[in-house]
């Protein structure tokens, strides 16, 4: 896997969400991702960044353009130092939420992107990595 472009953004306030989404869109446009795939990626990113703000009061996101097996895509890594997730299987279930939300954030984001990886330990923060390929597969 080759990383072609890399950028890091700090997310600490709710106002950082819109500029972050625009940056993700920029990355998608740069590799010629179709509108639907861009929308899916940005929506997933929006869900994840919102989770980060809500449960860990912020963190940082690494945005990368990657190339692997002749496929180009955007990889986003969301890192926070919040309380972590105790039961990952439960958190990935539709409709489950410890906050007052629809509980679609994590499972929904997973459905929107091609690759999804979540690492978390209680007390040690959470890292979510998602990859969406240019052609959405």
């Amino acid at each position: 896997m080759i990383v072609m472009t890399k950028d890091t953004m700090e997310i600490v306030r709710e106002q950082d969400v819109v500029p972050f989404r625009n940056r993700v869109r920029e990355f998608g446009t740069r590799i010629g991702m179709s509108l639907v795939n861009q929308t899916k990626l940005i929506t997933a990113a929006s869900e994840l960044v919102r989770n980060m703000l809500k449960y860990a009061s912020g963190g940082k996101v690494i945005l990368e353009i990657i190339s692997h097996n002749a496929k180009t895509g955007v990889r986003l890594t969301f890192k926070d130092e919040g309380p972590g997730i105790a039961d990952i299987a439960m958190a990935m279930r539709d409709g489950f939420s410890t906050g007052r939300s629809l509980g679609l954030g994590l499972p929904g984001a997973k459905r929107l992107v091609n690759e999804f990886d979540l690492k978390s330990n209680p007390g040690e923060g959470t890292t979510v990595t998602v990859i969406h390929w240019k052609h959405g597969r």
Partner: peptide
Amino acid sequence: MQPAVAITLVELGL
């Protein structure tokens, strides 16, 4: 609603 938004919402489960 934009087509891309509709497709995304359905995938999201909303």
